[in-house]
Amino acid sequence: MANPLLEVKQLQYSSEELIDLNLTVKKKEIIHQVSFTINHHEFVGLVGPNGSGKTTLSKLLTKIIEPSNGHILLDGVDYVDFRPSWKLHQEVSLVFQQVSSQFIGTDFITDLTLSLKNFGWSIAKIENRIKQLTKQLHLKSLIKRPFRELSGGQQQLLAIAEAIAVKPKLLVLDEPTAQLDSENTFLVDQLLAKIFKEESTSILLISHKPIELSLTQKLLTLNQGTLTGNYSTNEFLLDSNLLKENQLIIPATLAIRDYVYKLTKVQLPLVDLSINSLIKAIETVLC
């Protein structure tokens, strides 16, 4: 494909935050000269230490905040030309880290109905979409239950379902599993993989969980508001030094490979981070 879906050019942003009741204000996160592209139907990961500006970047990409400088283009159209702003939110949607603050309605159906009415959808169209979506994503058992009764993971599955309900061209997820345990993280990751397989949308996933990042095709690294690298996912995730530099936890499979290398100078040939891959590698080396 000739044109990328999203083009980010020389993006800059600075903001201020209230830190005590004396109304002291400090400069918070800053984005410096960030440029990158995302292609059609591409799954991109974004990693970086806490406070590196990941959340700010996700808000810029979804036009929740406006950059101080620079441009973002979606299919060649500048973000500033989407007027009013809500027109852009049909094209680009965002899933937040804080699970519960993203809903207004008390359950999925009410919440999604409200949200889709914003975009002028008719009731019939909304009902159709809900039916289709819940069938596709196997969420039928959750959609009528009040959010308060659901686990954080279940709520996050519904938040993702809502985000793709508008059939966005780009789905941005800001650490969607940071507040979840591994059981719920697994459910969310499974859903993301399914969505990417079945839908034509591109996905930008911000995360610091290596296993989750292995869903992606390429990875961008952000440090102190500056893009510091652009890697293919496999190259990045199998490199312990890169993981450490970006303050990610080394998965057990990689730790075992590195330790075995230290002791024997034999490199276990891992193809990815999965346990299967480690077991196979050990078998090949030993047989």
């Binding site: 075992i256 330790y259 075995v260 002791l263 050990i282 030993l286």
Partner: peptide
Amino acid sequence: AQIIATLI
């Protein structure tokens, strides 16, 4: 890792 190293 230690045991695998020994085996190797």
